[in-house]
């Protein structure tokens, strides 16, 4: 019995030490990639801006583009399996969403994971503000979002995240529905 405990304890300690070193070595690089990824995402969702400024208002952080009053923000919420993080570009004056880009998610590969990769995200290109309805067919009106086949929940969650972000952006920057 003692031998079993000692074996597992020693193995666990060695493993934890080794991984602590790996963590310290790789974490700065991983964070750097995320930073670059965020920057790219901001400039992707803001069609005309080439630069942006980070602005804090209350608890929220916004990225204001240098043209057209474009604003981007990161919104997140629960998905089917874990947190979904989305970068969203807005034009509050025109009351519309420019486009969105999913930054992080843990949805099912092959199903919900298709919230990334363009096709689903393109649902939100030049989307007017408002409440969205997720439908399982090609969209017919401006407030509809076409669900991913087999991943209705993931699709609805992303739509909810965008709706919530619209609410937040309207509180700060105004914008009509």
């Amino acid at each position: 019995m003692r031998k079993l405990l000692i074996t597992l304890t020693v193995l666990g300690l060695i493993s934890a030490f080794a991984l602590a070193f790996v963590y310290q070595w790789t974490m700065p690089k991983i964070l750097q990639h995320q930073e670059v990824g965020k920057k790219d995402a901001i400039l992707t969702v803001l069609p005309e801006s080439e630069q942006y400024q980070e602005v804090r208002k209350g608890d929220l952080t916004f990225y204001e583009g240098n043209k057209n009053g474009e604003v981007a923000m990161v919104a997140s919420g629960g998905g089917f399996q874990g947190q979904i993080e989305v970068m969203i570009g807005f034009n509050p004056a025109a009351g519309k969403v420019y486009s969105i880009k999913v930054l992080n998610h843990q949805e099912t590969p092959g199903l919900g994971a298709y919230i990334t990769g363009g096709k689903f995200e393109s649902n939100f290109v030049d989307k007017p503000f408002g409440e969205y309805k997720v439908v399982k067919r090609p969209v017919k009106s401006a407030h509809e979002v076409e669900a991913i086949a087999g991943a209705t929940i993931s699709s609805e969650k992303v739509a909810e995240i965008v709706e919530k972000a619209i609410k937040e952006i309207r509180e700060v920057y105004g914008g009509e529905i």
Binding site: L11, S15, V22, T26, K29, I30
Partner: peptide, 17 residues
């Protein structure tokens, strides 16, 4: 435990490089 240690290493390594 040993396998998981190496897998975690690979996971971080891929994410970093």
């Amino acid at each position: 435990l040993i396998i998981a240690t190496f897998v975690t290493f690979v996971d971080y390594f891929l994410k970093a490089f």
